[in-house]
């Protein structure tokens, strides 16, 4: 705890120093550039190569998933949809070919069904894209709902203390006692039939515990800081103190935690669908696709590879973005001191 505070103090001191130059004539010849916290964070994030590559890939995957087969009634550019069965061609093998001819391949070709077809002859690219749409949707909704609730509960508990805190924190303890997968599976069993969005919201309703604890901790230390004391002394209302003074200082923690929550939610959704407590047929998700075709691995491996590849890509990129954000907001681990 104390080292964190020290790092924060050092950071703000460095800032103060940078700004202080502005008013003296002596500033000329010095190259300490005044940078705001936000600029520093952005600069560090953009320098994080892993995070930038990941962000690009993730955006591309999201674009691909939502534009290819269309979403919510808006048509996409891909010729097949994910629900109409068709005639199975060549055991449904993928027609995608990336191997150039001079290396003995078939040259670059997309073909009729680049990812192949499933047993019913549905286009597997379209199915995978649908799975990706649903998995991404669920992950983001879970992330947003979970973060909102976590921040609210954490902030209230951290700011008000007393019985509000002990009540909320005991409730958090209760929720933490229930393993995430267990409560999510129970909720999935109950609400899974009601569609992905409902599923995502109810899962978000139970996935806030870690964040609440984190935010409470931040609030507990921030509420003792001088600027909060000052605001309170000036007669600011609690809501104003929470929203204008404390919350902006926890943006870093919240952003990082929310990102990691999304990464967890992707895996949670796929796991639930795999167990049969998540998304139900006829709709599909990446986890459901893997689950459905796990036994086809020896004979028709593409049915297994494609959804798996997309799960890993999405989870991996989100994790890397989270790491980049963490480094950007809290560079203390990267500093080596004499």
């Amino acid at each position: 705890m104390s080292t964190e505070e020290k790092a924060a103090a050092a950071a703000s001191a460095a800032n103060g120093n940078g700004n202080g130059n502005g008013n003296g004539t002596a500033a000329q010849g010095l190259s300490i550039v005044a940078r705001t916290q936000g600029q520093l964070v952005r600069r560090r994030f953009f320098r994080h190569r892993g995070a930038m590559i990941s962000l690009t890939i993730l955006v591309l995957v999201i674009l691909l998933a939502y534009t290819s087969i269309g979403f919510a009634g808006i048509p996409g550019w891909w010729i097949w949809n994910y629900y109409t069965p068709g005639k199975v061609v060549n055991r449904g093998a993928p027609t995608l070919s990336l191997w150039p001819t001079f290396l003995g391949g078939d040259g670059f070709a997309i073909g009729e069904h680049p990812f192949g077809q499933d047993d019913l002859g549905r286009d597997y690219f379209a199915l995978t894209m649908r799975g990706a749409q649903i998995s991404i949707l669920i992950a983001f909704v879970v992330g947003i709902v979970g973060t909102l609730i976590g921040v609210i509960i954490g902030a209230l508990a951290g700011y008000y203390r007393g019985w509000v805190e002990s009540g909320l924190m005991r409730f958090t303890d209760v929720m933490i006692t229930i393993p995430i997968l267990v409560i999510a599976a129970v909720l999935g069993q109950k609400f899974g039939g009601a569609g992905p969005l409902v599923l995502a919201i109810v899962i978000g309703l139970v996935l806030w515990t870690g964040l609440a604890r984190l935010i409470r901790g931040e609030f507990l230390s921030l509420r003792e800081k001088e600027f909060v004391e000052a605001a309170r002394a000036l007669g600011a209302k609690p809501t104003r103190i929470i929203f204008r003074h404390i919350l902006p200082n926890t943006v870093g923690v919240i952003t990082v935690a929310a990102t990691l929550l999304i990464a967890n939610a992707i895996l949670l959704e796929t796991a639930l669908s795999f167990l049969g407590f998540g998304v139900r047929a006829p709709d599909t998700s990446l986890g459901l696709l893997v689950s459905t075709y796990q036994n086809a691995f020896a004979t028709r491996p593409w049915l297994f590879w494609w959804p798996g590849l997309f799960i890993i890509t999405i989870a991996l990129t989100v994790n890397f973005i989270g790491d980049g954000l963490r480094d950007a907001f809290d560079p203390r681990q990267n500093r080596v001191r004499a």
Partner: peptide, 20 residues
């Protein structure tokens, strides 16, 4: 003393104290 010490990455030419 007015002013701040120079950046150790881009030192001014000549005497480092000259700006102040």
């Amino acid at each position: 003393i007015t002013g701040a010490p120079p950046s150790l990455i881009n030192l001014p030419d000549g005497c480092p104290f000259s700006p102040r």
